[in-house]
Design a protein around this nucleic acid. Structure first.
Length: 566
RNA sequence: CGGAACGUGGCGCAGUCUGGUAGCGCACUUGACUGGGGGUCAAGUGGUCGGAGGUUCAAAUCCUCUCGUUCCGACCA
């Protein structure tokens, strides 16, 4: 490739619409351009990076015994009605009618289509296990597309579906995919964690998300500094604290005029927030419940939801609190409280703390669980926080953001039952096929890789994902010696099968250096004055800025050695 | 869907409050100089100011509607 001929429109300034790093750099480096909200064109280098990810995914899927197919993007509504998802899926499913008034939709995922395919073509236990996958453009009409390739409406996804005779075989297929995913993300050069995901709606099944660790992630993860533990904060368990060994002092009511907030009460009484317990009121279905957590903690609403077994919990407003308890907000406490009370495990282990007195302008001190109020319902209800102990190894937890790049799911027979996908077993009886599904956000990986690998000058692609491995800068396009050497190197590297871009533009050196940094090519060769003077070529590593000067004869061997470390 | 902001040449922006011949930087074209971290000078190209309607002698500017984009939230996973 010659820079003078390729469409690689780099920008000095960042388009105003781009907020996150990967979006900014993808635009600036000339990798993508937006057509409309959440829909992008891939320019040559953007496509090249995408292909690199696809290639890794394909190799590993094939190695795992999966077979590649390609399914239609346009799908008939009737198929979706069989699973009830045409109604359930919501407005993310882009629906339309064709010229014959047939209802159709653009595929946001392919469980229905693949299950249809399999029920028509797989009839015997001999046909399984079977794992089929595709790499394809998906369309989800997101309410709010954002962050460029991170959450587009149209995006490239690898989706795989496994079919097995029973649950045990399906678990094996799941395990194979779990390991395959580990390999894929490792080969992509990404720092990632596999985290257990919520299996909520489909009982009995299980599921893992693969998260790339990066600041711009949309999910918050609790990860351990000392071991491999990682969990979505919604699921991360807070370790049971050991009870405080302290003698219970005498309960006392004191006046706290106008002091309602945790910090004002603390200030007024000269205590810290961890010596106080706050009482929060939630609406959970038809019920109103109170939750006790330490003054400096937050309630994790997902945990509360699961504890109560309801679909949703909403924080009560001042009026709802008063209606339910007869106490104005700010003075609530567990002593003689009239509504159902849930106690965070941490609070249950505390002694002699401060709570509201259930009376305007009064708080209580030296409150003790068990003695002053009943510990009817104790559970893990608070958010895990930085420096909390790790539930696995006891190390310390830190919080980080994660980008979901993969999600694997044991589906069971959810779809096969609805769509009557059965096979004939040894005994001649029809049995329902057991399924799994496995997704990877291929285009999202490109964005995630950039989120994780960049500096102030631009992208730093891992070698495995870079559109090409080497860029040669000809710093003397009007100098015969320099140009001849740059051209010679270019031809030689191509012959040796190295992916190389030759910057043969009549630009000043500064521009060429800036562009080379911006587009993120791992290795840079510079042919310039130093070649004329000392017959040396400069080789520079984008990732760490390391520079060496070598004679032309060494170039190919040096590059091959560098690239073999992939 | 709720809240907020923005829309002026390819990109980034000023001008809008206070109506009066559309501007700046970058990019692009031509020429000269220059040539190892986005260079200098000169001369140029390119915009019916998102669209429609209205007010006015006069609208980028005021009013109404509309389309688009972005941010926060909700939703979804």
């Amino acid at each position: 490739m010659r820079y003078s001929q390729i469409l690689l429109p780099t920008l000095k300034e960042t388009p105003a619409e781009a907020e996150v790093v990967s979006h900014r750099l993808l635009l600036r480096a000339g990798y993508i351009r937006k057509l409309t909200a959440g829909v992008y064109s891939y320019l040559p280098f953007g496509l090249a990076a995408l292909r690199k990810v696809e290639q890794i995914v394909r190799e590993e899927m094939n190695r795992a015994g999966a077979q590649e197919i390609l399914m239609p993007m346009v799908q008939p509504a009737d198929l979706w009605r069989e699973t009830g998802r045409y109604e359930k899926y919501g407005p993310e499913l882009l629906r339309f009618k064709d010229r014959h008034d047939r209802e159709s939709c653009l595929g946001p995922t392919h469980e229905e289509v693949i299950t249809d395919l399999v029920r028509k073509n797989v009839h015997s236990y001999r046909d399984m296990p079977l794992n089929l996958y595709q790499v394809q453009t998906k369309f989800r009409d997101e309410i709010r597309p954002r962050f460029g390739l991170m959450r587009g409406r149209e995006f490239v996804m690898k989706d795989a579906y496994s079919f097995d005779v029973d649950d045990e075989a399906a678990s094996k297929s799941y395990q194979v995919m779990y390991e395959t995913y580990q390999r894929i993300f490792e080969r992509c050069g990404l720092e990632f964690r596999a985290v257990e995901a919520d299996s909520g709606t489909i009982g009995g099944s299980f599921s893992h998300e693969f998260m790339v660790l990066a600041e711009t992630g949309e999910d918050t993860l609790a990860i351990c500094n000392d071991c491999e533990y990682a969990a979505n904060v919604e699921k991360a368990e807070v370790v049971l604290p050991s009870p405080v060994d302290e003698e219970a002092a005498e309960l006392e009511k004191i006046e706290t005029p106008g002091k309602r907030k945790v910090n004002t009460v603390c200030e007024f009484m000269g205590i810290k927030a961890d010596e106080l317990v706050k009482t929060l009121v939630y609406l959970a279905g038809d019920e109103t419940v109170a939750v006790l957590v330490r003054g400096d903690r937050e309630v994790e609403e997902v945990k509360l939801k699961n504890q109560l077994g309801v679909a949703e919990v909403i924080m009560a407003d001042d009026k709802q609190v008063y209606d339910a308890t007869g106490v104005p907000t700010g003075y609530l406490g567990p002593v003689d409280l009239s509504i159902r009370l849930l106690v965070d495990r941490e609070v249950a282990a505390m002694r002699n703390f401060v709570v509201g007195a259930n009376e305007k302008n009064f708080h209580m001190i030296n409150v003790n669980p068990g003695r002053d109020f009943e510990l009817a319902e104790v559970a893990d209800l608070r958010c895990i926080e930085t420096d909390d102990p790790c539930p696995e190894c006891g190390g310390t937890i830190r919080m980080t953001e994660g980008i979901e790049v993969g999600h694997i799911f044991k589906l069971g027979t959810v779809y096969s039952q609805d769509m009557n996908a059965v096979y004939q077993d040894h005994d001649g009886k029809d049995k329902t096929i057991v399924m799994g599904c496995y997704g990877i956000g291929v285009s999202r990986i490109v964005a995630a890789a950039i989120e994780q690998n960049h500096d102030e000058n631009g992208i730093i692609f891992p070698k495995q994902l870079a559109p090409c491995q080497v860029i040669i800068l000809n710093l003397g396009t009007n100098d015969k010696t320099i140009t001849a050497e740059a051209e010679r190197l270019y031809a030689e590297l191509q012959n040796r099968g190295i992916e190389v871009l030759l910057d043969d533009r009549d630009e000043r050196p500064g521009s060429k250096f800036k562009d080379a940094d911006l587009i993120g090519i791992p290795l840079r060769l510079t042919v310039g004055k130093r070649f004329v003077k000392d017959s040396v070529i400069e080789i520079r590593h984008r990732a760490d800025g390391r520079v060496e000067e070598i004679v032309p004869e060494q170039v190919v061997d040096t590059l091959l050695a560098e690239l073999s470390s992939i």
